[in-house]
Design a protein around this nucleic acid. Structure first.
Lengths: 196, 196
DNA sequence: CATCGAAACGGACCGCGGTCCGCTTCTATT
DNA sequence: AATAGAAGCGGACCGCGGTCCGTTTCGATG
């Protein structure tokens, strides 16, 4: 009897019903989030909407944060595609500085509109890391193209940090800064860091 | 019958038992946080430790975040005193640039050690705002002393953002950066922003 | 000191996130 | 097709944050 030799402990492929349920749950969650707002959606509601038991939801997505991270991931991959292969100046084809500024503006608006969802996703394991990692990588690349010298990973973090949801919401909600002012401020920061 | 004319709707002074309970609860919370860690403390446990009912805890501090914010506030005011009137270079008496760098290092370490508590305090109303506001004010002041031109509130935010807990924990836990590297990176950022 | 209204108290109660375990369903194998 | 056992399923159950409301305590007034 020949067993297929589990190479490098491949993590067991998903059973068909499991995959079907995963899709149903994710779709249900997306629908409910759009309809009731992130904070108005309970896990039980998602389970009911998807037509499965509550346990199944947790089995597939571990935790509420995990589920929200998965929902967030839908729009996030879309955005990453726009950055990597969309039209300039966000996508390739424009000068690095233009791309960097476009990147910041885009991320800024995205983080403000998806604020509640991002917060609900929290530090949900590898997913949140992947998102931050992508942004950091891209900024590092652009800084390199611009000939910036120094500790690029740290500098990238310095540019990304002011775009974090907590920071932006503080500025908008408590200090009543306008979107334009924050944008212009970020552009200024970029120029100081790049040294143009 | 003469009533003292409530000037400008003063918010009704606290009743004596209320004040006593507030102290007891805060002390109990501090004790439990130090003993079990932030995430191991439940509101019921705090109530029991303080010898009051659960309702009382919520009456005094609104929410769990509020209570944690109050606990955090204890050490936070201490730190603010050190910044405003402690020994240089953190306190007054050193050149502005030295003070700014000392400020960053101090805040960085504080945010890392108090990470769990700060996260538990969340965006708890005015308290969190006060903390951010203080830091922002101080950085703005130092930037002014350094003769920096531009939108100082926004620049201050740009310097403070990389010191946020979410950012630091990302760097330390996921990207495995050393404390020293982050410190040096922040110093570099400051110099680029100040334009020295 | 007796009275009285307002403020505070406490714990029963609710909804939600998360776990657990006995039952069902899938799929590899013969 | 029959079978076996692993993977998945669902919903009862638990603990916690937060609310509510009948009861108690405070302190101002006469």
């Amino acid at each position: 009897m020949i067993r297929p030799l589990p190479l490098l402990d491949e993590p067991t492929p998903e059973r068909s019903d499991a995959a079907r349920n995963r899709e149903a749950i994710l779709a249900a969650a997306l629908r409910l989030v759009e309809h009731c707002g992130v904070d108005g959606v309970s896990m039980e509601a998602v389970a009911a909407e998807a037509g499965v038991g509550k346990g199944t939801v947790f089995r597939r997505f571990e935790t509420r944060e995990g589920l929200m991270a998965a929902v967030l991931n839908l729009s996030e991959t879309e955005w990453q595609a726009a950055v990597l292969s969309g039209p300039p100046p966000l996508g390739p084809g424009a000068p690095p500085m233009d791309r960097l500024l476009a990147f910041g503006h885009s991320r800024l608006r995205l983080n403000l509109t998806h604020g509640a969802l991002i917060r609900a996703a929290g530090r949900a394991g590898a997913r949140s890391y992947a998102a931050v990692s992508f942004a950091s990588m891209h900024v590092r690349y652009l800084l390199g193209e611009l000939g910036v010298r120094g500790d690029l990973p740290v500098l990238a973090t310095a540019l990304l940090a002011p775009l974090e949801v907590v920071v932006l919401e503080q500025q908008v909600e408590m200090e009543h800064m306008s979107l334009e002012r924050i944008e212009v401020g970020w552009d200024d920061l970029v120029r100081r860091v790049v040294g143009a």
